Computed example of a mutant assay.
Amino acid sequence: MFTLIATTTFGIEAITAKELKKLGYDDLKIDNGKVTFEGDELDIAICNTWLRTADRILISLGEFKAETFEDLFQGTKAINWANIIPSNGKIHVVGKSIKSKLYSVPDCQSIVKKAIVESMKSSYKVEWFPEDGPTYKVEIGLLKDIATLTLDTTGPGLHKRGYREFAGAAPLKETLAAALVLVSDWSAENTLVDPFCGSGTILIEACLIAQNIAPGLNRRFVCEDWPIMDPDNFEQVRSSARNSIKTSPLKFLGYDVDDKVLRVARQNAEKAGISKYIEFHRMDFNNFSSKKPYCYVITNPPYGERIGDEESVINLYKKLGELKQHMPSWKLYILTSYNNFEKVFGKKADKNRKLYNGKIQCYYYQYL
């Protein structure tokens, strides 16, 4: 049994915790940017395959006070690394240090690598390791002189679903797009519209959720090459995931003014295997209209920071406010970093939530 950590973007920890509870995990500990829980090798396979909003699944290997390099070396060496890493394992150490006496990250990485090797020398009774086997990425994290050592089981981040080779000018991470959908009260019985769909990420993630398609179903994870991982675990999880897929006749509607980015959106939907459920149309939002009496809008419009200028962004936000006025039964969920959004929109949101799109602080405004 391991102590596992699902890392997340700041602001969506509770959403990831809710996902874990739905998967059957209890005794969750929620901190900034992570959710900690207990699990075994099968749980590593389940969480990597099924979690939509987590960034990575890490194994926590040790935590201790380290005010000196000797503390760091001895604390690291005391861990039985041979329990997880084979004699030919390729060890890569990354690190970070916040408010700690040991502030030189390269030095900390070097010391941790040396301590791991010394520990493995003692276990394997050899003096040299070829490092030509499976990859093991170890992270040394120092926070207020407390050292935490973790091992990454995921490899490329969990947002790498495998369907998005290309993206628009200001792409939204798949994990954040899934979080926007999960925070809303949208369900597959209702039409979902994204009037600023870009490369289609929100609609694709919503369709994967509606059809219960595991986000990691069509990719591999770095831990699959580890000797301690039974390959049957991932095969079992994938087989179960394939059998859990639902079908829905619902159409998702995406609009954008850019033909080029719409071609990318269609390619992404095709690669995700759900293109028949999503319609993408070229439309300037200033000309947007609909006869649907009841609809959900989940969207990540231009902020005026990465794309678009402030005047055009203000006009778009005013138009969104007019849409809500004319369609009061519609529910709108809008992610933006624009500080005066509610004022321009013309109405205070029923709810809002602070989220981060990359390093940009945003608010998720919810009009119910």
Rank of each mutant, 00 (worst) to 15 (best):
Lys260Arg: 14
Lys291Phe: 01
Ser289Glu: 15
Lys354Met: 09
Lys348Asn: 10
Glu342Asn: 04
Ser244Gly: 05
Val261Ile: 14
Tyr356Ile: 00
Asn340His: 13
Leu250Ala: 11
Tyr303Asp: 01
Ile334Lys: 05
Gln267Pro: 02
Asn315Pro: 01
Lys318Thr: 13
Thr336Met: 02
Leu332Cys: 12
Val257Lys: 12
Tyr296Ile: 02
Asp284Glu: 11
Tyr333Leu: 05
Leu335Arg: 04
Asn286Gly: 14
Val261Thr: 14
Phe341Tyr: 07
Leu323Cys: 11
Leu335Ile: 09
Leu250Trp: 00
Glu279His: 15
Leu320Val: 10
Lys291Ile: 03
Lys351Arg: 15
Ala349Val: 04
Thr336Tyr: 01
Lys347His: 06
Leu253Phe: 13
Phe288Gln: 03
Met283Val: 12
Asn268Trp: 10
Lys351Ala: 12
Asn300Leu: 07
Asp258Trp: 06
Glu322Ala: 10
Glu322Gln: 13
Gly304Ser: 08
Tyr255Trp: 08
His326Glu: 14
Thr299Ala: 09
Tyr356Val: 01
Ser312Arg: 15
Arg282Cys: 06
Ile298His: 03
Ile278Trp: 05
Gly273Ile: 08
Glu279Trp: 13
Arg263Asn: 14
Asn315Met: 11
Ser290Ala: 09
Lys251Tyr: 10
Asn286Val: 01
Ile245Asp: 06
Ser248Arg: 01
Asn268Gly: 09
Phe252Thr: 07
Asp258Met: 05
Val313Ala: 01
Tyr317Ala: 03
Ile245Asn: 03
Gln325Pro: 01
Gln325Tyr: 10
Glu310Met: 09
Val264Gln: 12
Lys331Leu: 07
Asn315Asp: 08
Phe285Trp: 14
Val313Ile: 07
Arg306Asp: 02
Lys348Met: 08
Arg306Cys: 05
Lys347Gly: 00
Gly304Met: 08
Ile334Asn: 01
Phe285Pro: 03
Pro302Glu: 06
His281Ala: 13
Gln267Thr: 13
Ser244Asn: 14
Pro302Tyr: 05
Pro301Glu: 11
Ile298Trp: 09
Tyr317Gln: 03
Ile334Ala: 01
Lys246Ile: 10
Lys260Val: 15
Lys354Thr: 11
Pro249Thr: 07
Leu316Thr: 01
Lys246His: 10
Phe285Gly: 03
Phe285Glu: 11
Glu311Phe: 09
Leu332Ile: 11
Lys251Ala: 07
Ser275Asp: 15
Asp350Ser: 10
Glu310Cys: 06
Val297Tyr: 07
Asn357Phe: 06
Lys292His: 12
Ser329Thr: 14
Arg306Thr: 07
Leu332Lys: 03
Asn339Gly: 00
Lys331Tyr: 02
His326Asp: 12
Asn268Pro: 12
Ser290Gly: 08
Asn357Glu: 06
Thr336Arg: 04
Thr299Lys: 07
Tyr333Ala: 06
Ser329Trp: 12
Gly308His: 02
Tyr338Asp: 04
Arg353Trp: 11
Ala349Ile: 06
Phe341His: 08
Leu320Gln: 13
Tyr356Pro: 00
